[in-house]
């Protein structure tokens, strides 16, 4: 099965309006399979979330986390079980903090790298000098409520370019939820998993292997087999998304540019040089960013 996750959320433990129970209820009402708590610089809500879910036998999976909210950028930590101090962060060596969190078993990623920072909210823009992306697990390519072209498009392109250049970085998205903003029409993060499976392990496998989908409701499946790439589109039933399969277009993005095809096409692997990294993206109507439905996991051709 594919699990729909919301990976960037806040509560009254930091600066949001939902308390822990209200956030859980909000996601249950929308059919979310699992969610992360990523309050700013505190882990105080994590045990509360676990307790509420366990005591009430609620059908939703929980990922403990935190959003390291630093002077020079925000770092999402998922599967975080203990606080890792960040205050001595050096903007020239952010890898130290990424590695410190990773050493505790957390998955780390850059949140909204192009958000507006000073003088509105210093630190919201990622201004650290990252020279070694091997310590980073993912990039939040859509922070749903941020401006599409000013903030999210450069984040998407940053991730694409890093993946094209050989980095193993998963794509995620998030609502950066601070209140009861409707989820309909926004992107969610999807991973493969089993019903009743261990969400921490499933998330780790998905992130570490770049097996995440960022989607508004349809998942583009594209796997190379027997020298050809065939496509399929799976609907997830995400509330607010009405599929228009007849309008689907696929963009195959590479470092060299972009090719387009339809879901029914079969693409020969031989059209690409060995080692090429492809990122399949599903659109409706045309490949304008406004029409992007799904960013699928990258494919590295042999």
């Amino acid at each position: 099965m594919y699990k729909r996750l919301e990976l960037h959320n806040h509560t009254t433990e930091s600066d949001a309006s939902f308390n822990c129970r209200e956030l859980i209820d909000f996601f249950l009402a929308d059919g979310v399979d699992g969610f992360a708590l990523t309050d700013h610089n505190t882990i105080s809500g994590n045990p509360k979330m676990r307790r509420i879910i366990e005591e009430n036998h609620l059908p939703i999976e929980f990922i403990p986390g935190m959003e390291y909210t630093t002077y020079y950028g925000h770092i999402l930590c998922l599967n975080l079980t203990e606080y890792v101090p960040w205050e001595d962060i050096n903007r020239h060596k952010p890898e130290l903090l990424f590695r410190a969190a990773s050493a505790k078993g957390a998955l780390t990623g850059i949140a909204h790298p192009y958000s507006f920072g000073w003088p509105f909210a210093k630190g919201c823009r990622f201004e650290m000098e990252m020279t070694d992306y091997s310590c980073c697990d993912f990039i939040e390519i859509f922070n749903n409520l941020e401006p599409l072209h000013q903030v999210n498009e450069p984040a998407l392109r940053l991730w694409e370019n890093l993946v094209f250049s050989g980095h193993c970085l998963a794509a995620t998205c998030g609502m950066d939820l601070h209140g009861s903003t409707p989820l309909a029409g926004h992107y969610g993060t999807y991973i493969e998993g089993e019903k009743g499976g261990d969400i921490a392990r499933e998330l780790e496998h998905a992130i570490k292997n770049m097996r995440t989908w960022v989607s508004r409701g349809a998942l583009l499946l594209a796997d190379p087999e027997d020298g050809a790439i065939r496509f399929a589109v799976q609907q997830t039933g995400k509330p607010g998304y009405t599929p228009h399969p007849e309008q689907y277009r696929i963009a195959l993005r590479t470092a060299a540019g972009q090719g387009e095809c339809s879901p029914g096409d079969v693409i020969a692997v031989s059209e690409f040089a060995p080692g090429t990294v492809l990122i399949p993206e599903l659109f409706e109507n045309d490949t304008a960013l406004e029409n992007l439905i799904c960013v699928a996991p990258p494919i590295r051709l042999r």
């Binding site: 930091s14 600066d15 505190t42 105080s44 606080y83």
Partner: peptide, 14 residues
Amino acid sequence: IATLNGTFIGGIHR
């Protein structure tokens, strides 16, 4: 942010 004996005990972002 507060720590007690080196362990994080709370942070206020509001």
